[in-house]
Design a protein around this nucleic acid. Structure first.
Lengths: 196, 196
DNA sequence: TAAAAAAACTAATAAATGTTAGTTTTGTAA
DNA sequence: TTACAAAACTAACATTTATTAGTTTTTTTA
């Protein structure tokens, strides 16, 4: 019974990875069994191995899909011919956007990366470190061009990264606030502050 | 061989829970085995059951210790006779402080709560929801007394919660920034913004 | 339609895990 | 020193898990 369909949603491996992301987010990587994943896909567990190499390979696919998306976006922003404030703004907006369209994957990449095997684990951490360093660089540029208040660049980058990273848990509060509203308000808050 | 010591560090159960918090943070709750925990304590795994009821009970201890600390702090802040800005400031400072002194526990409470069993799982989520609602209330008060810029209260509370929650991952960057520096800068950034 | 490839199935395995039972050792109080 | 309680130990278990092997069914290709 050929049940795993590779439609416009991508290859069969990608279909499996997407379902895996949803499962891993809800239950965690370790607590998610291949049997559970198979049920979601309407198939027996060993059948999955016709399409994937291992369970941890699914985690790799998810984590590096997100890592790639982050890296590519940052690259675009860096090459932008725009004021530094605009770059920071776009950085924040990107995070708010991706958390909406790839919630499961972003959540898994942020929470379950530690179950990657080597050499993927090291590679993932290197990429994350690079990402953080590049944001810091962006903020230092802004500080150098005198557009920022007197805030330590490293502290600012940590605050921004923390804020956008914690966004995962906004998902629960969707009801009271549209994505657009959150985006505008958060950009405003992080760039211009809360108090008059 | 009576090896688990209940010194000034608390009861034996508390000593075990503290080591468990460190282990759970590093490897995740599910990936941490009782045998590993036993090694850390210099004991065989079944010996642990002279002191604790189950593995998940350790998770309960950790999660609710933190939930209690959060709730108590918020209560103190609410009862404070101070301007609303001061209350928000103290709220942020508390999070930066507790992440320093109880890093493992806060991390575990934030990441591993989903492995709690009922009725603890529901209780934990209720408490977290209440906490978020109370911060929102605080911000609405501030908005009502006209001290805030024109930011949606729910968005502001999400931004602040996200920022302080994501602080876990500042721990890695300690090198470049003292706790005090981070605290002052983050409060400043979240309350007054980044851009001049 | 016949052959080949893809992908499903069943059965089985080896390893790891939380936990219990039963026993021995250690520390304490009389 | 003797008796009791606390807490360690060894051995074992039932379960769950990812994965492999081998086989049958389905789909594609020629």
């Amino acid at each position: 019974m050929a049940k795993i369909k590779s439609t416009t949603n991508g290859s069969k491996k990608e279909v499996i990875a997407r379902k895996a992301a949803a499962l891993f987010r809800q239950k965690g990587f370790n607590a998610s069994s291949m049997r559970e994943l198979a049920v979601v896909l309407g198939v027996e567990a060993p059948s999955l191995y016709n399409h994937i190499g291992s369970k941890v390979e699914l985690l790799q696919l998810i984590c590096f899909k997100i890592a790639d998306a982050f890296a590519e976006n940052l690259k675009v922003i860096e090459q932008l011919d725009a004021p530094i404030e605009t770059k920071l703004e776009k950085f924040i907006r990107f995070h708010i956007h991706i958390i909406q369209v790839e919630f499961d994957e972003v959540y898994v990449a942020n929470h379950e990366w530690k179950f990657l095997h080597e050499p993927w684990l090291t590679e993932f951490l290197n990429r994350r470190k690079l990402y953080e360093e590049k944001l810091l660089q962006l903020i230092k540029e802004a500080a150098a061009s005198n557009v920022l208040r007197n805030i330590h660049p490293l502290a600012a980058s940590l605050t921004i990264l923390s804020a956008v990273r914690g966004l995962e848990f906004w998902h629960r509060n969707k009801a009271g606030l549209s994505a657009k509203e959150l985006e505008e308000n958060m950009v405003d808050h992080l760039l211009k502050g809360l108090i008059k």
